[in-house]
Amino acid sequence: MSRDLILQAIISGILMGLIYALVAVGLSLIFGLMEIVNFAHGEFLMLAMFATFWLWAVFGLDPLISLPLVAAMLACGGILVHFGIIRRLLSAPMLAQVCGTFGLAVALRAGAQFLWTPDFRTITSPMSAGRVEIGPVFIGQPQLVAGLICLFAFAALWAFITRTDTGLALQATAQDRQAAAVMGIPTERMWALGWAIGLGCVGIAGCLLSTFYYIFPEVGVNFALLAFVAVALGGFGSIIGSLVAGVLIGLTESLGGLLLDPSYKTLIVFGLYLGVVIVRPMGLFGRF
């Protein structure tokens, strides 16, 4: 096996991992803030991809143009989910909370199948189409653009959370909701903001993913699964943890697929997860 092939796998693994990471960070943020697991996370990724697809198919908007629009749509969706569903479930038993987001996932998937059929769709020749040559390897340009924008989104999120008053208030609410509230920080608004940011990240990831991936109603299932692994691997509530774990998963998948057999790649990812969690149950960067 040539060195170039391995290098190729490493680069494409990192790029895919950055997308996993951005999906995972939304999940992690929402969990860290209010201890709610969003089982519909993958379905929101699917919705973002379909939104991107229809904006392209109907209005001729390239995904790179519709990116802010799709992110904003998903962020608004997050606020709606918070006030429409989650808020009512906060004082309900654990099982009801699980059923709430899980039911939403089933409904969204069924709705997508009904409205748009189970067909696979693609966005043909997006603006970012093509290949770039990095030394001896060729990388798909859509993947490269997607990975870089995801990395940029991470940097922006990190700056927001750690450098702005609102971002710090979000962290404060996650760490001690009551202490934050008596200081005047509005818990409800922080939770809604968490959902907006969490699903906004999914919107960015889904929009970029649709430039090189099939778009179909079930597309979110596998991504959500990997996002759950990334969150547990990186540590619940940790932003850096999601980034590192997402990239690690992307790398494991692509290197594992290359060195062993592509059909084993998911198995290898779960092996990595079990290995880390046995040694460090709180995940790589977790606090619990």
């Binding site: 760490q175 009551q178 005047g184």
Partner: peptide, 24 residues
Amino acid sequence: RPTHARAPLGIAHVLERRRVFPHL
């Protein structure tokens, strides 16, 4: 009034057991 709307009136509550934000 919700909790967060009471602080601006001039009430500060230092909770039992300190409750600082540990990771800030």
